[in-house]
Nucleic acid binder design. Structure first.
Lengths: 225, 225
DNA sequence: GACATGGATATTGTATACAAATGCCATCGG
DNA sequence: CCGATGGCATTTGTATACAATATCCATGTC
């Protein structure tokens, strides 16, 4: 990852995911190049990749801007992710190995540790979660499926709301991971597929609830100003 | 489409889809630039896009080559396409408009005309087929779904075998389009979804049969040499 | 005063030069 | 004869200069 275009990609991506670059912001190549300490050439490559990820969009005249995700876009992405990731779970269950089981259990353990702290370690939770899903995708053994899911996993709005997850939500997510693990241990593809569908759609509704709550809060705040 | 990078993308893509650039061939940026009459910069952009399409791959040291599709890769792509495109069909049925119905019927008419020639007009068939599926995707109204399917629709091996479709296969494909049209006319999402799944998977098996036949023929030919 | 027009300014697209790395091949040593 | 090593050729990565295009603002006209 020492190539300049990779650094630019990572840097811009982080700025978008963190919200430092807000939705709708214009992305001038020159300005980004200076921010990343590289020339425009690698920045242009990075922007193309981010465009494929649908994290940035383009006007009809090739001006680049941070993509603005409507609530419908998010719902759409979650539904597609539920479909694809549950398929990955089924394939993974059918091809599961003992070595992969051990890694999955390890990921779940660190995830459990993260949520049992007196103050839940959300970053640790997200890391364990990411690893869990990555192992499933790896065992599923479809490069194409992995490529399709790649653009769906990290969504800017979602990451920011994940930090507001209640302990109860974290606990439920962990419980679902344990149930998925049981399905994998039994090599039961249909079971794994069903739990994964439910897991993703529950996460979507947790997001949607948080989104509504934030909208209400925002409106209250605006009214107060 | 007058930008140099678009021309390069189209030109290289056609060379891959037509088989002019065979699977596994090294793709030197300089050589491609000369072929397309542009400089390396737009060629590099085109290669990145083709990489996202999974039409080209990269070695661990960044050398680019034409992707080699195993029979398993093709099966994988067809299964994913069946899943995604049947979802598109369901959404399209639920959102269908009279105007879109008219366009779908028009695409089917030109498709019917193409296969009724004394010598079937396969290019015309493929055009009508493409338009039919494009309208469905448009009516489905999910930009993200369209983006995911974009990388799955045109596969090099498939296009080349489509030209060997028998009249019977073309006729069956057209019959399935008519049945899909009926499902759309009834706004019946479940029906449309089921037919589309079947439509894609039948097309896969037609491909797989042709592939096996070609393998046999190839082996015979080799033995004869 | 509103709108069109023109030019200055900013931004993107392409070409090219150069730097870095990779691969190939010949030569040398065992 | 086989393998390792060094250097040359090729290829990719990055920066920069220049060209084409879009945006914006000011000016002039109705």
């Amino acid at each position: 990852m020492s190539r300049a275009s990779d650094r630019a990609y990572g840097a811009i991506r982080n700025m978008i995911l963190s919200g430092e670059l807000p939705a709708g912001a214009q992305l001038g190549e020159e300005a980004l190049a200076e921010m990343c300490g590289v020339s425009r050439t690698p920045v242009r490559e990075a922007l193309r990749r981010l465009e494929a990820d649908m994290l940035v969009g383009r006007t009809d005249t090739q001006r680049t801007f941070v993509a603005d995700w409507s609530i419908d876009d998010v719902a759409d992405a979650f539904e597609l992710r539920a479909m694809l990731e549950s398929r990955a779970a089924r394939r993974a269950a059918e091809r599961m190995t003992d070595a992969a089981m051990a890694r999955i259990r390890g990921a779940n353990r660190s995830l459990a540790t993260a949520i049992q702290q007196s103050v839940p370690d959300v970053a640790g939770f997200l890391d364990g979660n990411r690893e869990f899903h990555a192992i499933i995708l790896e065992v599923a053994g479809s490069r194409r499926l992995a490529a399709l899911l790649g653009t769906l996993i990290e969504q800017p709005v979602v990451l920011r709301t994940a930090r507001q997850y209640s302990r109860e939500e974290l606990r439920r997510s962990h419980a679902e991971h344990e149930e998925l693990t049981a399905a994998f241990a039994r090599r039961d593809g249909a079971w794994a597929e069903a739990i994964m569908t439910s897991h993703i759609l529950r996460a979507y509704h947790a997001y949607a609830d948080a989104h509504r709550a934030r909208l209400d809060a925002g409106m209250t705040q605006e009214a107060a100003e």
